[in-house]
Design a protein around this nucleic acid. Structure first.
Length: 753
DNA sequence: GTAGGGTTAG
């Protein structure tokens, strides 16, 4: 006999040589029996021949089974269903081997209606008691029971196969339990799954069919239990899932990797690292800790419990990392603020020739956003476009956020405008972007558009719109949104909302009001909420409220250094030097040392960072030269050093700081002058808020809480940047107090991918 | 026939 490879080739080149049905079936059977993956194209072609050759005398059950199994195992789910319908139409009835494939196809196509019909067929034929069929049905119902009616391909497939519901109507009472009708009803009310879950009450209704199938199954194996457990775990029924694990033990079945990787996400969600560790221990004792699925679940669990080091340990012990474990560990780092580590791992992954996918990109992008390294973000964006991932809503949202945070609000807006689908996260990212750039009107307008478009704001969206109001001095609007959040949307305010409102009132100088507001909150306010207000007290030079606020903070945390610094600066700003000095003494006695302020700018894909008093930059002398020159120029233009606001806590090592740096405390004013003289826009990011300096004015309308502090002046004038200024371009500078982010000149975050 | 990773938070 000819080899499997050569026979079909010869025949298929000349289809007319396939004269008989039996020859076609033989051909097909041979190909199907051979290694399917190496002959995919041939098999597909032979199936086409097979399907069209003898429409009047359809294939036997055995042939149909081969076809259906082939289609399903190669992901051709729509073809599976076509074959199933044709088979049924031709009077050949499926046996128990056919149903699992067909049900699996319905699951993948997110078509619950079709699946229910198939279930009806199985009942009709009396083979719904089959173990494999039952397992497949449970899996389908646990994945589709809620979502199947909401979206997906359900309707499309339903239209194509309008015959199918007829087939399944015999015993549809079983396949369509009351829960489905109610689910559909909720859907019509426009309530999201998230809302339903949060409000409770759905649990009893959902997974009804899964439980029914499980209960009627005469025989259950580990797969049945795992499917049931996973179904409950993935639908938020954590207690039930854990209860079923115990029940499974009673049935003398041992947890396997499937069981463990369904249970681990529950403890990740509960942030219960002790229970998670117990599972880890079990996995080690049973030699399962090197299983890739368990590994990535462990990585995620530890990361969710803020134990990134443990995530990395698990990852390093995996014999081979696949894209999921790489993505997990990268996401774990980024979500815990270890941005540099995340980027390092990402580069390592590329070196290991692992191709990033959707999840990898949306996991790593926030690292670029928070490090303000737009050139890295752009490189990633390039990879995303080349990989065809740019229509993914997760990725697009992360890009909107990244560009906005890196100062490039126009690009952010362009991406947002071109998104195919916009969800609550993309809206929020865009609204927050506008808020950070001081475009409050636009932020509010977007928020309204979102509401009108039927997307319900969540608590994060309210943080965004409150931020917009706060930055633009829109006190009334902000308070209205805060109330709307509580009364119209039933969202109870969290610390971040209280902080926003405290900021809103504080920036506007309504310090007493803000103090009362925070004091009234039901949630116990944290130091961070009070600190927000204390910063406003400093701006408004109100030592009276500042003292009250500081007292609150010190009750919560007697060694809160930020509060000491802010209170001391408030005294300085109000001219009460003695009190300020006294606080400095206390701080020194307590051994507190303020982290030196740090500023950095990205020029020609390189990050230049400057710490106060640091002379290590290779162009330090040139920078100083230019700085002195510019200072003279802006002073001629009318800039006066504001000696009243010498807020710098000049420490021992900073005493050597040059005249210029020490005097440039009122950087916000100085930068306006520089922008005017140089005739260019300067964009500065300060604590997440952007200042666009142009033509002697700033976009924040001087309505900024902190004023820009720190050794700002240094980095206008590193030599390459000076060239940049001359070209009239703008680049984003960033201020902060995060030593190490980025590394000193040219290091760390400045590296390419 | 069953299992793992993602975007927004002054």
């Amino acid at each position: 006999m000819s080899s499997i490879q050569s026979l079909p080739k010869t025949l298929l080149k000349n289809p007319s040589s396939i004269k008989t049905k039996s020859l076609a079936q033989q051909l097909h059977a041979q190909i199907v029996k051979s290694n399917a993956t190496t002959h995919l194209n041939l098999i597909h072609e032979s199936l086409i021949v097979f399907n069209t050759l003898h429409p009047s005398s359809p294939p036997s059950l055995g042939a149909w089974k081969s076809i259906i199994r082939y289609y399903t195992s190669n992901g051709l789910f729509l073809q599976t269903l076509t074959a199933f319908v044709k088979m049924w139409d031709s009077g050949v009835y499926p046996d128990h081997n056919v149903f699992p494939s067909v049900i699996k196809s319905c699951t993948h196509l997110v078509d619950l209606r079709f699946g229910e019909s198939v279930h009806g067929c199985a009942i009709h034929l009396g083979i719904d008691f089959d173990l494999f069929t039952g397992n497949a049905l449970m899996n389908m119902y646990s994945k589709l029971e809620t979502f199947g009616r909401i979206g997906g391909l359900g309707d499309v497939v339903g239209q194509v196969f309008d015959k199918m519901p007829k087939l399944g109507k015999m015993k549809m009472n079983y396949a369509l339990p009351p829960s489905n009708k109610q689910t559909a009803g909720f859907d019509r009310l426009g309530m999201s799954y998230e809302v339903l879950r949060r409000n409770g009450g759905m649990e009893a209704l959902r997974l009804d069919s899964v439980r029914k199938v499980f209960e009627m199954m005469p025989k259950r194996d580990l797969v049945s239990w795992n499917t049931l457990i996973a179904g409950n775990a993935q639908n938020g029924l954590y207690k039930e899932a854990l209860y079923m694990v115990r029940e499974m033990g009673k049935a003398n079945l041992q947890p396997d990797p499937f069981t463990l990787s369904s249970v681990l996400p529950i403890f990740a969600e509960y942030v219960d690292v002790m229970k998670g560790k117990e599972i880890h221990g079990y996995a080690i004792r049973h030699g399962l800790d090197t299983n890739g699925f368990i590994g990535s679940s462990l990585i995620d669990m530890y990361a969710n419990c803020t134990r990134v080091e443990d995530s990395c340990k698990v990852f390093n012990l995996l014999p081979q990392g696949d894209i999921v474990s790489w993505s997990s560990v990268i996401a774990g780092c980024v979500q815990n603020g270890a941005f540099d580590e995340g980027l390092k791992l990402f580069r390592k992954m590329l070196l290991a020739k692992i191709q990033p996918v959707n999840v990898t990109f949306s996991s790593i992008m926030p690292a670029c956003a928070h490090l303000t390294t737009v050139h890295l973000g752009k490189q990633l964006h390039g990879c995303i476009i080349r990989g065809g991932f740019d229509d993914n809503v997760f990725i697009a949202s992360s890009l909107v956020d990244m560009y906005a945070r890196c100062g490039n609000i126009k690009t952010a807006r362009w991406i947002f405008n071109n998104m195919e689908q916009i969800d609550i996260v993309s809206w929020t990212a865009m609204i927050m972007g506008c808020a950070l750039h001081g475009h409050a009107d636009e932020a509010i307008s977007l928020f309204k558009q979102m509401e009108m478009g039927g997307v319900k704001p969540n608590s994060v969206a309210f943080v965004a719109v409150l931020t917009a109001c706060s930055h633009a001095k829109l006190v009334e609007e902000g308070l209205q949104y805060f109330n709307s959040m509580i009364h119209d949307y039933g969202i109870s305010p969290g610390l971040e909302h209280y902080a926003s409102v405290a900021d809103l009132l504080g920036r506007a100088g309504k310090l007493e009001e803000a103090y009362e507001f925070i004091s009234r909150t039901h949630t116990k306010p944290e130091g961070s909420v009070w600190s927000t207000l204390l910063a406003s007290c400093r701006v408004h030079k109100n030592t009276e409220v500042a003292e009250k606020v500081a007292e609150k903070i010190f009750t919560l945390d007697p060694n809160n250094m930020v509060a000491y610094v802010l209170l001391s600066n408030t005294y300085s700003a109000a001219g009460r030097w003695k009190e300020a000095a006294k606080l400095r003494t206390i701080m020194r006695d307590k051994g507190m040392r303020k982290k030196p302020a740090c500023s950095w700018v990205e020029v020609n894909n390189k990050v230049h960072a400057f710490v106060a008093g640091d002379k290590s930059h290779p162009y330090y002398d040139k920078i100083n030269e230019v700085m002195t020159f510019l200072l003279e120029v802006i002073e001629r233009e009318g800039y006066v050093v504001d000696t009243n606001e010498v807020l710098h806590d000049v420490g021992e090592e900073q005493k050597r700081v040059s005249y210029c740096v020490a005097t440039c405390v009122d950087c916000h004013v100085a930068t306006k002058f520089v922008a005017k003289i140089m005739g260019r826009e300067i964009i500065v990011m300060d604590n997440g808020q952007f200042h666009h300096f142009r033509d002697g004015k700033c976009s924040c309308g001087d309505y900024c809480k902190i004023g820009i502090g720190g050794p700002l002046f240094q980095w206008y004038f590193d030599s390459s940047h000076f060239v940049h200024i001359a070209k009239g371009k703008s680049s984003v500078m960033r201020l902060g107090t995060k030593p190490g982010i980025p590394k000193r000149t040219g290091g760390g975050a400045g590296c390419d991918l």
